[in-house]
């Protein structure tokens, strides 16, 4: 089922906004994470951990979930489909992995913020640099796929295309 052009553009706009917003929020989170990990100033490190928790809970998680949902709607509502082209399929897999890791890591970030805010020495806390750097890399890969759309149709997509494409002899 293909969406009407105006609805398709509205959905695409929402998907782009949430996806790029997700990338920007993770970049900001990486800055906070780096500060929390390397800073030797206790108040600064403590504030960074608290800000990390706020960023994850109120910005990154909502944007990620919205991006996934709108992305699926966007794919299903256009002729690209969700499983017909490898670039779409790869985007879906990467997004689901990134979102899954995010949801698993969010409680850890919350726990670190609670420890930092409760008076513990924030310089002793481990930070989450591996996750934030990895997450940023995955999101960059997703955006590259979105822009370049490398060619490659899945077998399913090829079968769907073969069943719906009109015969060339009928148009000449």
């Amino acid at each position: 089922m293909t969406m009407a052009p105006r609805l398709r553009k509205a959905v695409l706009t929402t998907h782009v906004a949430t996806s790029v917003g997700w990338l920007g929020a993770v970049a900001a989170y990486l800055a906070l994470d780096t500060t929390a990990t390397v800073s030797q100033d206790v108040p600064t490190a403590r504030a960074a951990y608290v800000a990390m928790d706020v960023t994850v809970s109120y910005v990154i998680v909502p944007l990620a979930l919205t991006s996934v949902l709108i992305g699926i709607i966007n794919a299903l509502g256009t002729s690209w489909g969700l499983f017909r082209h490898y670039w779409v399929l790869m985007k879906l897999l990467l997004t689901l992995v990134a979102t899954g890791v995010l949801l698993l890591e969010a409680p850890t970030v919350d726990a670190l913020a609670d420890r930092a805010a409760s008076g513990a020495d924030p310089r002793q806390l481990p930070g989450t640099l591996a996750h934030s750097i990895g997450g940023l890399a995955v999101l960059l890969a997703i955006i590259i796929l979105s822009v370049y759309k490398p060619r490659g149709m899945t077998r399913y997509g090829w079968r769907r295309s073969a069943s719906t494409r009109p015969s060339l002899s009928a148009t000449r």
Partner: peptide, 11 residues
């Protein structure tokens, strides 16, 4: 970001 036609895939 317009969607190019998906009908010109290789294969």
């Amino acid at each position: 970001m317009a969607d190019p036609s998906p009908t010109d895939d290789t294969g």
